[in-house]
C-alpha cells in the first residue's frame, strides 16, 4: 500500500481510536486485497511504510463479502458494485481477506 495512504490510515485511527473503525476494500486482485488486509490488521508486510510493525487489528472486509453485501440496499449495490463483482475474481478476493481476518484474530 502506498506509504502516504498508510500514514493517512494511521493518523485517522490515532485521532478517532480503533474501537468503531471498519475498513472496506475495493481491490481488483486477490494478492492486493490480501496485502491491504494485512496492512490494516497485522501491519505493513513489506516493512516499508508507517504501518510497518504496527498492528491496528482493524476489522477489514471486501465489499463483495456476503456479511457486508447483505447490509447494503440491493438497488445501491446493484448500481455501484454488482458489475465489478461479475468482472473481478470476487470469490478468491473474499477468501483471502477472510483468511487474513482469521489469521489476525480480528472479530467478525
Amino acid at each position: 500500500m502506498d506509504l502516504e495512504d498508510q500514514g493517512a490510515i494511521k493518523a485517522t485511527v490515532e485521532e478517532l481510536g480503533s474501537d468503531d473503525i471498519v475498513v472496506i476494500l475495493g481491490s481488483p486482485d486477490p494478492d492486493a486485497a490480501e496485502m491491504y488486509a494485512e496492512t490494516v490488521t497485522l501491519g505493513d508486510p513489506t516493512y516499508a511504510g508507517p504501518l510497518a510493525g504496527v498492528s491496528l487489528r482493524l476489522p477489514v472486509y471486501n465489499i463483495f463479502e456476503p456479511e457486508i453485501k447483505e447490509q447494503i440496499p440491493p438497488e445501491v449495490y446493484q448500481e455501484q458494485v454488482a458489475m465489478m463483482e461479475m468482472v473481478l475474481p470476487a470469490e478468491e478476493i473474499c477468501a483471502r481477506v477472510r483468511a487474513v481476518r482469521e489469521k489476525a484474530g480480528v472479530s467478525s
Partner: peptide
Amino acid sequence: VIVLGERDGV
C-alpha cells in the same frame, strides 16, 4: 469506515 478504493477495482 475507512474506504480503500481502487480505480481498477471498486
